[in-house]
Design a protein around this nucleic acid. Structure first.
Lengths: 249, 249
DNA sequence: CCAAAAGTGTTAACCCTACACCCATGT
DNA sequence: ACATGGGTGTAGGGTTAACACTTTTGG
């Protein structure tokens, strides 16, 4: 390994000295959102080497007084202005040479954000949403991280209704269904899907899509107006206490 | 933080110098096994401070040229002589002061071992199997790690038959059932359990328990002799390719 | 009036659950 | 003989899966 670890060399350039070899710790975020049509991931274009001009997951070094999760939250805010309503760690990537400069261990997080709060790309870095099935090749091992994040997200969906944090407070049944279909990679029958969702008892009926409603209206497309629902957190947490609820499809 | 990070100090005692603050990386193993009756965890008694004489999970520092998983495998072998037939990373623990000496980030692994290969505690360290429900208070944050490992194990069982790696090659249906019951914390009906397991199509019938069979015979207890099964890895992997198999109970 | 999307109910297959009795074995 | 644990089948309830037509709306 040609990593920048120096024995017996110190001064301004290498001021942090330890008894044993250490690693740098970063936290990366796989930020998912949903625009009602596609599942999107947030990527940043790198400004420096290595992998200059390649797209990468947002993330960065964890400070000495932070947990990985706090670091992830901070980096995400700094780089994209986003606050994750759901942050979930799912693995560690520790291959010694995954960063060519020095050994970097990364803790990636699945971050789910509501798509309303769009990423205002900050100063230097360019940030953009990509549909998950159309991401370009990424820097480092981020392709692999993204792929494992998708698997982990699929699994989470079996145990809790994380998907609701991807939706606006008001949403329609077809939107919810599309989201499930994208994440799980499976098609569902409209009627059966709606029946199941309603029977879970965590949805509140809110009315029909209309100008008075703060749901996104689509006026371009000719169709009947869908019903609007919202997610009832109280009912969900009550339900969680009672038993290992079964959210599978 | 009173951690041992020194600026501008070097020499034999602190020979590893870096540009940015670093962390030490350890890999811990939550080693489960099953003796046909209890789910067991392997613990080691600590020989030094901090937490001298407290029980702890086996584990140790990851070398510069190893992934966390390789480190876990090596430490496990060094400390207990065990080889894990299933190693699964499930989380990272990165609270800054979880080790009082310096910042240590740990990657814990669920290690499943076949109970035949018992832990021959090595030189200094004392190693012992504890039934999971009777573990003493552990060093560091290992209580929490253990508790999360049990949750992760339960979840794994929904997606793949990891439990088979805890059983000897030949096992009986009641043994398998007990294992499921312990991990999932739920009781099952004998008939329904056997029916479901058989219907999964990954078990091979091997005969009836007898002296000619290498399954553990119990001669102390008066009862009818059970049938013996083995796990068919080939059928399982074929099945995995076909679809997201549903292993839940 | 046409195309697009949403709403709606019923039936059959399957799976999970619950349940009781007999058999083989060792003491 | 008896106590322990293992084996076995069936009936009822619930859940899932499959299926087609009508309504609303915008163009």
């Amino acid at each position: 390994m040609a990593h920048s670890v120096f024995k017996y060399r110190t001064g301004e350039a290498y001021p942090y000295c330890y008894k044993y070899p250490q690693v740098a710790l970063t936290a990366d975020c796989v930020v998912f959102s949903y625009d009602g049509k596609d599942l999107l991931v947030l990527l940043i274009k790198r400004g420096q080497e290595p992998f200059k001009d390649r797209w990468a997951l947002p993330g960065g070094f964890v400070n000495p007084d932070e947990t990985a999760e706090q670091g992830a939250r901070r980096e995400l805010l700094e780089e994209t202005g986003l606050e994750a309503s759901h942050l979930e760690q799912f693995k560690v990537f520790s291959t010694p040479d995954r960063d060519p400069r020095q050994r970097v261990v990364t803790v990636p997080f699945i971050a789910l954000v509501n798509h309303k709060s769009v990423a205002g790309g900050d100063d230097a870095a360019e940030a953009r949403w990509f549909p998950v099935d159309k991401v370009p090749p990424l820097a480092f091992d981020h392709d692999q991280i993204l792929s494992e994040a998708r698997t982990a997200l699929r699994r989470s969906l079996y145990f809790s209704p994380v998907s609701f944090t991807l939706l606006p407070p008001q949403f329609t049944m077809p939107q919810l269904q599309r989201l499930y279909e994208i994440i799980l990679g499976r098609k569902f029958d409209r009627r059966n899907f709606a029946r199941k969702m309603n029977s879970l008892g965590v949805l509140d009926f809110q009315g029909i899509e209309s100008a008075g409603n703060d749901v996104v209206e689509r006026k371009d497309v000719p169709s009947r107006k869908p019903s609007i629902f919202s997610f009832n957190r109280v009912k969900w947490s009550r339900m969680k206490d009672e038993s290992d609820t079964n959210f599978e499809f």
